[in-house]
């Protein structure tokens, strides 16, 4: 997946621990992110956000002059951009509070560097979609904006359900998406109604994206669990 365009996004990091700020900045820099601003307090974060107009904020919950939840509310008044909490507070209540207030993600310390990078990239991609985006597969490419598959120069349209299923698979590309999660994506939140099975749709998607649908290489089955979409440059 092409994520180079995300590397220029302005990211605001707020944490009262200087060493941790340095670490996060260093991880993000290693991941290619170039526009980073760091702040050690609520007041500093507010004044910096005026100047830099961040496109993503990574906040700690406990700050010397206030808490991250209130800071998020103040930041969101000035600009609508995603907020990720990175905090030592691992309690469920804190997580629910953060998500309830509109946080986009919540990472509990300690974290793995690649986990942080993965989540930051995921949030940015969700928020700042570059349209149109062609998703390259082994034998074809998906054009989600037009809801079609391009294979050997041929444009094959996707049905609404096929589009929903492929979107769900693409959101977790390279990872198993369970049968249940696919059903939920295509038919809504009804984990108990199994009148619908994604199998027939998956077969038709394969006929569209695979050179040899009976030996799939892009949309593979994980027996009993679900399916996995393999995107080429990922």
């Amino acid at each position: 997946m092409n994520s180079a365009y995300l590397k220029d996004k302005r990211i605001l990091l707020v944490d009262d621990e200087k060493a941790l700020l340095e670490l996060v900045a260093s991880i993000l820099q290693d991941g290619g992110y170039r526009c980073l601003t760091t702040a050690g307090s609520v007041s500093e974060a507010l004044s910096l956000s005026e100047k830099t107009r961040p496109e993503l904020a990574i906040l700690d919950v406990m700050l010397p002059d206030g808490n991250g939840f209130d800071l998020m509310a103040q930041l969101k008044q000035k600009g609508d951009y995603p907020v990720l909490f990175l905090t030592a507070r691992g309690e469920e209540e804190d997580k629910f509070r953060g998500f309830g207030l509109g946080a986009d993600d919540y990472i509990v310390k300690p974290f793995l560097p690649r986990e942080l990078l993965y989540r930051v990239t995921a949030i940015l991609r969700r928020t700042y979609r570059e349209e149109p985006e062609l998703v390259p597969l082994r034998d074809s490419a998906i054009d989600f904006s037009r809801a079609e598959i391009i294979r050997n120069g041929e444009h094959i349209p996707l049905t609404a359900k096929e589009h929903d299923l492929l979107s769900a698979l693409y959101r977790s590309a390279g990872r198993i998406v369970t049968i249940d999660a696919l059903c939920e994506a295509a038919w809504g939140d009804n984990p108990f109604g199994y009148e619908n099975s994604p199998m027939a749709h998956i077969r038709r998607i394969r006929e569209k994206i695979e050179e040899n649908p009976s030996r799939p290489v892009s949309l593979v089955t994980v027996r009993g669990l679900g399916y996995k979409l393999i995107v080429e440059d990922k």
Binding site: A19, L20, L23, V24, I27, K109, P110, F111, P113
Partner: peptide
């Protein structure tokens, strides 16, 4: 958690 973040991060 915070000191361990440092260890794990670096």
């Amino acid at each position: 958690r915070t000191p361990l973040s440092m260890v794990m991060g670096y």
